[in-house]
Computed example of a mutant assay.
Amino acid sequence: MATPSTPCSESTLTDRYQTTVPDPIRKVLGLNKRDRISYTIGSDGQVTIARIEDENNDPLLGQFLNFLAQDIQTNPQHIRQVSSDLVDRIRSLVANVNLDLDAPLTDDDE
């Protein structure tokens, strides 16, 4: 026999039928701003919420960005301003680089 679930969080619908996903739920699902979620209605009427995995999303990049965000929050003293010398050096390295982000990749690029 299945054990009935106990709600761990709740939220309120606005007049426009919108709600905020509670923090514990966002953490469990690994939700970030602009992520998409799906709702599945079971035969018993219970609704399940899940994060929609973006096929174009690189999971390693997401994990790395989450690591950076957590490190910045935990250790803000590690944040340093980028020097103008470094900015000038980067600009000089890419000054003559032309890039078309909409161009298809060649076989050599893939």
Score class of each variant (00 low, 15 high):
residue 47 V to G: 01
residue 5 S to K: 03
residue 85 D to T: 04
residue 106 T to A: 04
residue 47 V to C: 04
residue 84 S to N: 13
residue 85 D to S: 09
residue 96 N to L: 06
residue 32 N to M: 13
residue 6 T to K: 12
residue 26 R to M: 06
residue 105 L to A: 00
residue 58 D to F: 09
residue 51 R to M: 01
residue 25 I to D: 04
residue 71 D to Y: 14
residue 2 A to Y: 06
residue 102 D to G: 10
residue 9 S to A: 11
residue 86 L to K: 14
residue 107 D to E: 08
residue 89 R to H: 14
residue 15 D to C: 11
residue 53 E to K: 15
residue 59 P to I: 08
residue 60 L to V: 11
residue 108 D to K: 04
residue 83 S to V: 01
residue 64 F to K: 07
residue 57 N to V: 09
residue 61 L to F: 09
residue 75 N to D: 11
residue 13 L to F: 08
residue 3 T to P: 06
residue 12 T to G: 08
residue 59 P to W: 01
residue 87 V to N: 08
residue 100 D to W: 00
residue 41 I to L: 09
residue 23 D to I: 15
residue 1 M to S: 12
residue 9 S to G: 08
residue 24 P to R: 01
residue 64 F to V: 06
residue 18 Q to P: 07
residue 101 L to R: 07
residue 45 G to N: 08
residue 60 L to H: 13
residue 79 I to R: 10
residue 102 D to C: 09
residue 30 G to V: 01
residue 31 L to A: 06
residue 4 P to M: 02
residue 70 Q to N: 13
residue 50 A to Y: 08
residue 71 D to R: 15
residue 98 N to H: 00
residue 19 T to E: 09
residue 29 L to S: 04
residue 86 L to Y: 13
residue 34 R to L: 10
residue 70 Q to T: 11
residue 46 Q to K: 14
residue 90 I to E: 02
residue 15 D to R: 14
residue 64 F to T: 07
residue 88 D to Y: 11
residue 37 I to N: 03
residue 68 L to G: 02
residue 16 R to E: 15
residue 51 R to N: 06
residue 65 L to C: 11
residue 16 R to I: 13
residue 52 I to M: 14
residue 18 Q to Y: 03
residue 41 I to A: 08
residue 33 K to L: 05
residue 43 S to P: 10
residue 101 L to T: 06
residue 65 L to R: 12
residue 7 P to C: 05
residue 97 V to D: 05
residue 1 M to Q: 11
residue 41 I to F: 10
residue 49 I to F: 03
residue 35 D to Y: 03
residue 6 T to R: 08
residue 61 L to H: 11
residue 34 R to S: 12
residue 45 G to T: 03
residue 34 R to F: 11
residue 17 Y to W: 15
residue 25 I to R: 05
residue 69 A to P: 08
residue 43 S to T: 14
residue 70 Q to E: 14
residue 40 T to F: 12
